[in-house]
Design a protein around this nucleic acid. Structure first.
Lengths: 138, 138
DNA sequence: CCGTATCCCCAGAGATACTG
DNA sequence: CAGTATCTCTGGGGATACGG
């Protein structure tokens, strides 16, 4: 394996496990886990992955599908996903030009862990909202 | 069910599914899924959940365990997690005072989807780095 | 149709100092 | 020990206009 990373063991082991040393901020910054976590948290990336998981889309199709995204952020996010090998960009030299975006096989494998997390969110939405209503706002 | 949310269907259905209408930005903002996704992406929350998933910790213990976190962000993050019902804060009125933080049962259920995602990150780290090295930097 | 190029704003996050 | 209180800065992200 290459770099060190913050240990996120599978559930049984996480309960029996203790991190031995302080988690260094620098390692965490380049840790593949926190790297992916940050991407999951950014505003548009996972929404695009989900949309493209349904079927390939053209640029303006994505722009219309996601209300509120700017062209700047749509392009930037797609390029980042492409650079990470999650999204494929195909230019068809027609007139007018058409560009199709789709998930790569790697991108496709992300759908499953993503829906696991999304399932959790939906299943526990009520509990979270209840907790929020109990404690006074921060 | 309460609010609408961006559909993140389980894997088989995501491939057969198409979002019918533009995803409204406002709905997405209050969507439980994107809500959790944002928390996953924030800098310290999930690291704290993972640490507390191992065992309960006291405040300064967490502060020492996570190199680079400021007192301000440690407190703020813990309070947010507490407000969401993921973390429990117990004050023991000793001298000097001691405060223990632990995962709630709800917080514990988050460990599994979290490690699913972390597993994905570790497993595909090499592919991502390879993709990044192929494409010229953005 | 598919983007770049600029400018601008503000919330997330760090540094530092102080307190019950 | 376990926090507040300020100040500050950075970069994520929006608006707008223009270009191949």
């Amino acid at each position: 394996m290459s770099g060190t990373h913050t240990d996120v063991p599978s559930v049984p082991s996480v309960l029996a496990h203790e991190l031995p040393r302080p988690v260094p901020a620098d390692e965490f910054a380049t840790c593949p886990v926190s790297d992916v976590f940050r991407r999951v948290g950014d505003k548009w990336s996972m929404l695009l992955v989900i949309l493209l998981g349904g079927r390939p889309h053209r640029y303006n199709e994505l722009h219309r599908s996601i209300e509120g995204i700017s062209q700047r952020m749509l392009t930037r996010t797609l390029r980042t996903l492409e650079a990470d090998g999650l999204v494929r960009r195909e230019v068809h030299p027609t007139v007018p030009p058409s560009v199709e975006y789709s998930l790569t096989p790697l991108g496709g494998t992300l759908l499953e862990p993503l829906s696991t997390l999304a399932d959790w969110a939906v299943r526990h939405e009520a509990e979270i909202n209840e907790a929020r209503s109990r404690l006074p706002p921060i």
